[in-house]
């Protein structure tokens, strides 16, 4: 249990810094909101089209805003080379990794909490018909995203072109996750909701998260250490 507590400590450190400046949170949320506005102009707004496109819009917003947040969150550790300090800290590296992933996940969840109501408000997407499963799906998707994202954002810390390379690495690897998220959301807002499909994709996401969490924990150390 102590590893989890240490991870929570690391996450709390990140969140405290963030709560002081709110830089990442505000910029990410603004960006996600902007995306929704762009969607409203870029795509047809009739009910049928919105119903078909809303799940994709939601997950694209999560992916884009999440990537920005990831890059920025790790940039903060780079500026004063505090990543080295974190890795040298007398806690298991597992705790460092988990803490980072938790703080990123919370940020991305906050963004999702901003952009989902905006999608409902601006586009009339029927996302809130089954709020429980939707929250579960977003939670699972965000966990997978932040776990894999933290590993690669941490390895890219010293790379000059990290901003372009992060999506180049992350998106191909995360396509199954985003597709699963989109499919679940789509099944949820279809009339009637296809709970058979929802259940399949939630299982898929759960297994995906579990496998990649184990893999990330296992590889984090050797990927980050020179």
């Amino acid at each position: 249990m102590s590893v989890l507590r240490q991870a929570a400590r690391v996450a709390w450190k990140d969140l405290r810094i963030e709560l002081r400046s709110r830089e990442i949170l505000y910029t990410m949320a603004f960006f996600a909101g902007l995306l929704v506005v762009v969607y409203a102009f870029a795509f047809p707004r009739d009910e049928r089209a919105v119903r078909g496109a809303a799940p994709g819009m939601l997950w694209v917003a999560i992916a884009f805003a999440g990537t920005i947040g990831l890059g920025r969150a790790f940039d903060r550790e780079r500026e004063n080379d505090t990543m080295r300090a974190l890795l040298l800290a007398p806690v298991p590296r597992l705790a460092v990794f988990l803490g980072k992933a938790i703080s990123i996940a919370l940020l991305v969840l906050a963004v999702a909490a901003v952009c989902t109501p905006l999608l409902v408000l601006f586009l009339g997407a029927p996302l809130f018909t089954h709020p429980g499963p939707l929250v579960l799906v977003i939670l699972l998707g965000v966990i997978g995203f932040s776990v894999v994202g933290s590993v690669f954002a941490a390895t890219l810390l010293k790379v000059r072109s990290r901003d372009v390379l992060l999506p180049v690495i992350l998106y191909p690897l995360l396509i199954p996750l985003f597709v699963a998220g989109t499919k679940t959301t789509m099944a949820l807002i279809s009339t009637p909701a296809d709970f058979h499909a929802v259940w399949y994709w939630i299982q898929f996401l759960g297994i995906y998260d579990a496998v990649f969490l184990v893999l990330s924990v296992w590889t984090f150390e050797s990927l980050v250490i020179e």
């Binding site: 690669f152 390895t155 890219l156 790379v159 390379l165 180049v168 690495i169 893999l215 990927l223 020179e226």
Partner: peptide, 21 residues
């Protein structure tokens, strides 16, 4: 792309990508 543009630590990052892939 990672191999080409990630500089000196490209080997590690690419290895991670291959494993995750």
């Amino acid at each position: 792309l990672v191999r080409r543009f990630a500089g000196p630590s490209a080997d590690r990052i690419a290895a991670g990508m291959a494993i995750f892939g």
